[in-house]
C-alpha cells in the first residue's frame, strides 16, 4: 500500500536536460521522487513531472521511441497531478513550429511558436517576472503559484513559447521580445510552466511545496 504521507512522484527520464535539478528540488521540499522511464512506474505514480530542455522534435521522437506517449496521456486522463516544465510544457501542445512543424502530445490545444527577433535577444536566458493575465481574474491562491506575488521573478531559458487556444487556462504571463506570453497554465489536473521553478530560488521552491501539498492533500 502507498504510504499516504509519502506518495511517489515519477520524474520522466527521457534524456532531455535538467532531471537532476528537478529531483534535488523535490527532495528539498520532501517530495519522494524517482527518475524513471519505466511504463509501470509511471502508470503507478501518484504524480508525474515531465521536465525537459532541448529540441521539441527530438523530445517527441524519444518519447515515442520509449513508447511513453500513450502512458503519459493515460496518466493525465486519470486525473492525477501532472507538472510539465519548460519543454515539458511545450510538448503538451498540439504542434510546434520549432525547425519545421512537429506534432506534440496534443493534450492541450494550441501551438508552440518562436519569439520574434526584435528588441531582445533570443533565446531568453535569465530571470523574468510573472504577472496575472490582464484579461482574466485568476486567483493564484487556487493554483501552484499560491503564496507568490505579482512580479515575482522566475528563471527562464527558451526561444519558443506556448500559445494555447483557450485563454482561460493561462495562469501567468511574462513579457519578453515585445510581447506578453503564457508563462504558466493550468487545465484540470495539468499544471505547466515555461520557467524552471527548480532554478528560481525560494520562489521556485514554493511551487514545488505547493505541488507537494497538492499530491498529499
Amino acid at each position: 500500500m502507498t504510504n499516504e504521507k509519502n506518495k511517489k512522484v515519477v520524474i520522466v527520464d527521457y534524456a532531455m536536460g535538467n532531471i537532476f535539478s528537478v529531483k534535488l528540488a523535490c527532495q528539498k521540499v520532501g517530495i519522494c521522487a524517482i527518475v524513471s522511464n519505466d511504463k509501470k512506474e509511471i502508470s503507478n505514480a501518484s504524480a508525474l513531472i515531465l521536465p525537459g530542455v532541448g529540441a521539441f522534435a527530438d523530445a517527441m521522437a524519444t518519447l515515442e521511441k520509449l513508447d511513453l506517449v500513450r502512458t503519459i496521456k493515460e496518466f493525465i486522463a486519470s486525473g492525477r497531478p501532472f507538472l510539465g516544465i519548460c519543454l515539458g510544457m511545450q510538448l503538451l501542445m498540439s504542434e510546434s513550429e520549432e525547425f519545421g512543424l512537429h506534432k506534440g502530445l496534443d493534450i492541450i490545444k494550441g501551438r508552440v511558436v518562436k519569439f520574434p527577433a526584435v528588441n531582445d535577444k533570443v533565446p531568453q536566458v535569465g530571470w523574468n517576472q510573472i504577472t496575472k493575465p490582464s484579461y482574466s481574474n485568476i486567483n493564484w491562491e487556487e493554483t501552484l503559484l499560491k503564496g507568490l506575488s505579482e512580479k515575482d521573478f522566475m528563471y527562464f531559458v527558451h526561444s519558443f513559447y506556448v500559445l494555447p487556444n483557450n485563454n482561460n487556462i493561462v495562469v501567468s504571463e511574462t513579457n519578453y521580445a515585445g510581447l506578453n506570453y503564457c508563462s504558466s497554465l493550468r487545465e484540470k489536473n495539468i499544471y505547466a510552466c515555461q520557467f524552471h521553478p527548480e532554478k528560481s530560488g525560494e520562489s521556485g521552491l514554493l511551487i514545488y511545496r505547493n505541488f507537494y501539498n497538492l499530491i498529499n492533500k
Partner: peptide, 8 residues
C-alpha cells in the same frame, strides 16, 4: 523585459 544577470 530583459533583466541583467549578476553571476559570481
Amino acid at each position: 523585459m530583459k533583466n541583467i544577470r549578476i553571476i559570481p
